[in-house]
């Protein structure tokens, strides 16, 4: 029982972490809570279904193959990346330098817009997601890791390693770190801040798109509303870890997944969200900047 809950928690947590990364990266650079980020994840899930549907209709390749899975991922990544960049360009860039609440409202507007757009285009009802991993799995004493769980965790770890490499080993990664520390200074030393912000949205959205596919396969059902709750959870995870910190988002996501899973298993499944938020509040009381966040002393 405990082992099973841990496995479920880690699976869920790695997805939260993937989405939380997008929140935390954007926040780290432009201090915006991008409320529309959850919708990008939702779009990713829909891209999976659309790609799968297209493949089945065209009979080009067997929709059950690995190639199909890869195609779904690639399409979702491309599409979500493009959406993320467009979103920043249209709804946030014109507001840079305005008061902090304006871009937040704009983000909420984008969120409402995207939700309703998908509802109108794809219909309000739940859609079945193809399960490409039926059956497989590893049996452990008292627990079972299904193939899809392994796939989710492996993919998440790979994406996170990729992100670490991008941020720490590449030129654009260096520019991102510099911009996150001090945008004006980055600007002065010749970093194209607009481009850095675009790339940040691109990367964050790609991760969210992948997360959408993973969750779609895990639960088997998606609808236009899944972005909302996942978005809130991922944002909670980002804050739990210390918003703006990439490792924080990973840690926060995993922890939140575990907390929810254990809370649902041992306490009450109806109240699992209450449990997650309660933990967040308790953590913030003792560590006001999140688990990995630095204590910000007042600058006078």
């Amino acid at each position: 029982m405990l082992l099973q809950q841990l496995i479920n928690g880690l699976t869920l947590g790695s997805v939260y972490a993937l989405i939380a990364l997008g929140y935390t990266m954007v926040y780290g650079i432009i201090e915006l809570i991008n409320f529309a980020h959850g919708e990008i994840y939702m779009l990713g899930a829909y891209m999976g279904i659309v790609t799968f549907g297209l493949l089945s209709t065209l009979h080009l390749i067997s929709p059950d193959s690995v190639v199909a899975l890869l195609l779904m991922m690639v399409v979702a990544m491309l599409f979500c990346g493009a959406c993320g960049v467009t979103m920043e360009r249209v709804a946030y860039r014109p507001l840079r330098g305005a008061s902090r609440l304006s871009p937040l409202i704009s983000a909420l507007g984008v969120s409402i817009f995207l939700q309703n757009f998908v509802m109108l285009a794809q219909g309000p009802r739940d859609k079945g997601f193809p399960n490409l991993f039926a059956g497989g799995g590893i049996d452990l004493p008292g627990a079972r890791i299904s193939a899809i769980q392994i796939f989710i965790m492996a993919t998440s770890v790979m994406m996170m390693i990729g992100l670490q490499l991008l941020v720490h080993r590449t030129k654009i990664g260096k520019a991102m770190r510099a911009t996150a520390q001090d945008m004006q200074m980055a600007c002065m030393v010749g970093i194209n801040v607009d481009r850095v912000i675009s790339v940040t949205f691109l990367v964050g959205s790609i991760l969210a798109g992948v997360a959408g596919i993973l969750v779609g396969m895990y639960y088997g059902l998606i609808n236009f509303f899944i972005g909302y709750i996942a978005g809130i959870k991922a944002f909670t995870a980002a804050v739990l870890g210390g918003i703006g910190k990439i490792q924080g988002a990973m840690l926060g996501g995993l922890l939140l997944g575990l907390i929810e899973s254990l809370g649902a298993g041992y306490i009450s499944s109806e109240y699992k969200d209450v449990f997650a938020f309660a933990i967040l509040i308790v953590v913030l009381i003792f560590r006001p900047s999140g688990l990995l966040g630095e204590d910000i002393s007042k600058r006078v």
Binding site: Y27, Y271, D273, F277, I281, L284, P288
Partner: peptide, 26 residues
């Protein structure tokens, strides 16, 4: 929660709102 900085306050209040709603629901 009031000693938290702006955006942390935002998520905590959001969480509080959800907690109340979920409790009412269950």
């Amino acid at each position: 929660v009031l000693r938290l900085r702006g955006d942390y306050l935002a998520i905590v209040t959001l969480g509080f709102g959800e907690m109340i709603r979920i409790t009412l629901n269950n």
